[in-house]
Design a protein around this nucleic acid. Structure first.
Lengths: 172, 172
DNA sequence: CAGTATCCTGTCCGATACTG
DNA sequence: CAGTATCGGACAGGATACTG
């Protein structure tokens, strides 16, 4: 995804994106989740061409992550606000930020995740039902109750390579 | 990202990807982190065109997520294995899976995240330094010690829109 | 200010064919 | 088996101009 410079490359999210894929969409979501709403705000923040912004915005609306909401009758004006699904995407963004911070923060973290009240740093982690922390390497996947035939087949193949993957269980 | 069908669309990761961006890379990482190593394995699992696979694989190697390792002299054969950075990307993938499961699992989860030993379900969450869980909405960002001028400026702008964003702190 | 309309380039991606 | 070579289509993305 050789984007030319990728806006704001010091941002850990952008750093991650530079390495993994394309994603104007993710950057837009990052901004939307930080409180940006209006076309112009995105436009300024991202330096994206207006036609692309329109396209990406529309696709995010279509995807159900953003809602296009009219905030002025005349002239007709719209703002783009995260839906619950989009809001929940924050975890992914945060995981991204964490990852970027851990591996591409050359001279220290440029952006920190914090509890907004206590101002203490937080991080994204894996926990079990009791809230106990589980190390990432400790994790695996298994078929859920709605696993299709294809999924089961796939997991069966994987279990041949990774002994810790159990292809069978579909119970909740 | 209208990919034609997006391989294995029942997979929550793929579901997420369908909505957010492009990302053969992410799908490749998903597979690599599930134990796939060889060109042919990726090729079969993803149904990706071989030239694209080569490109994506190379770019992931370049990005430092995968290591190209020779496992046979004659004939020369290579395998692609996650580096520590790539390994750590697992959290992001998991966050994705969780998100997909929560919002795009129409008839129940098709893939579950579990502790590989206990087989009990796990999830990706935000925790503070004490390991206490923090709700996602409770989170915000602030400038870290390595924040550049541009980043500080950006955060200053954001703090005008989101009262919970504090533009100033750069201390660890 | 909040976009739409055009045009252009790059490249993502698929399909297919070929090689040691 | 593990790719490389080549071709073509679609669209991402950039630049710019225009509109109410």
């Amino acid at each position: 995804m050789q984007r030319k410079s990728l806006v704001n490359a010091e941002c850990p999210v952008a750093r991650g994106v530079e390495r993994v894929g394309e994603w104007w969409s993710i950057l837009i979501m990052r901004d939307a989740l930080q409180g940006l709403r209006r076309f112009d705000e995105f436009s300024q923040s991202l330096g994206i061409a207006p036609n692309m912004l329109t396209r990406r915005l529309n696709s995010l609306v279509e995807a159900g992550l953003l809602e296009r909401r009219q905030y002025s009758e005349r002239p007709p004006r719209f703002e783009y606000v995260p839906t619950p699904v989009g809001e929940d995407f924050r975890v992914v963004i945060m995981a991204f930020i964490g990852w970027g911070n851990r591996h591409f923060a050359n001279e220290g973290e440029s952006l920190q995740l914090v509890d907004r009240k206590t101002r203490r740093p937080v991080e994204v982690a894996v926990v079990d039902a009791d809230g106990a922390r589980v190390s990432v390497e400790q994790c695996s996947v298994q078929a859920g109750p709605a696993a299709s035939e294809g999924m089961l087949e796939r997991l069966a193949l994987l279990s041949a390579k990774r002994s810790d993957i159990d292809p069978s269980p579909r119970t909740a």
